[in-house]
Design a protein around this nucleic acid. Sequence first.
DNA 1: GAGATCATAGACAGAGTGTCCAGAAACAGT
DNA 2: ACTGTTTCTGGACACTCTGTCTATGATCTC
Lengths: 201, 201
Amino acid sequence: MTVIEDRRSRRTRGALRDALVSLVLERGYAAVTVEDIVAAADVGRATFYTHFKDKEALYDHVVSSVLQDLKERLAEVLVPEDAGFTGEPVAEVFRHASEQPDAYRMILRGEGDGRGLRAFEDAWSATAFEIFTTRVKANAVRPRVDLQVLARAWVGEQMAVLLWWLDAPEPRPATDQVVETLVELSRRGRFWATGFDPDSR
Amino acid sequence: MTVIEDRRSRRTRGALRDALVSLVLERGYAAVTVEDIVAAADVGRATFYTHFKDKEALYDHVVSSVLQDLKERLAEVLVPEDAGFTGEPVAEVFRHASEQPDAYRMILRGEGDGRGLRAFEDAWSATAFEIFTTRVKANAVRPRVDLQVLARAWVGEQMAVLLWWLDAPEPRPATDQVVETLVELSRRGRFWATGFDPDSR
DNA sequence: GAGATCATAGACAGAGTGTCCAGAAACAGT
DNA sequence: ACTGTTTCTGGACACTCTGTCTATGATCTC
């Protein structure tokens, strides 16, 4: 197998990817036709079908590319087994998102009937669950909340803020700033955030 | 105008609603055709178009019905102006969702390219923002986090858990139980949830 | 029961899909 | 620069689904 695919294929696939994402953000997934995509990508319609089975396959390709790429980058950050709440994984996701904001926007908005959104949520929840499990074991504490639920809740929070951040007008608030807030929020809770002094315990 | 619409219309619209929701959960929004819907609802295809412009219009109708209904029920719960964290609004949403789980599932999964999801999120975030604002003013504290962001984060958390709950195998965990956990979690934060003693301050 | 409203089948044009083909173009390796 | 391979392309095709319309029958409300 050739390690690097034919330049023509690379160009075509890239153009189709970009065309899909920008058209979806413009009109919504359902309103985008294959004919629109090939027109925007300046590619023959027959060519589309030599690369992808249909619009859905192209969409899935985009989503799994993003997910795969994110996974590799998280792997580098997650190696340390320390049980601290560094927020590094979250920061990495935000950085990754800022490099391809449109693809993230498409996914997080639920375009494509939420398939990308769910894939993203599942992947991230699984990671979160592992992090929590590791930390709970390392610190020998007994969780007061089911860790699966906790992971879902945490990820839901992150994703909502991430989408808000991506949709915010440029210049966006600094990544570190937002992540810092997010970490503090999840650490201390909403009482702290609203300005009350913690009354817990 | 007639206060109660014609029985035939009522029956037809109801059947179309139900057909859409169950077909979408079964195959996904994009894969459902108008022909499928009318077949499942046992209604003539021409009849569909006398009630709704297209599939999208039917979907929007379902979503806004749910939202409208929820809004009315929340209005009853929200009247008290006390600034406590009762969690009553959240409980009401869970109760409402348990009465029509399929419609909620459809919306929360992002079917319909996330339009329902965003409508739901926007409506709930606006409510959350009001609650937070009221409480901050009533207690004369200075929030440490932008209340818009806080509202988004909180709602994201709720929605993720709500979907998890709706997708959980029956019998589902008791509503009060889940809501109680959710309230405690958002109040005290993730440190508390994982079993650590709060180190805040 | 009468008049209004609604449901229905079938016909229609049009948009978009997915497949196929044969020729043109661009490619990689020598 | 040449060659064999791979990719791109437009045009043709059958097909599915859409949205509109009409005439007729069925069902409502009062």
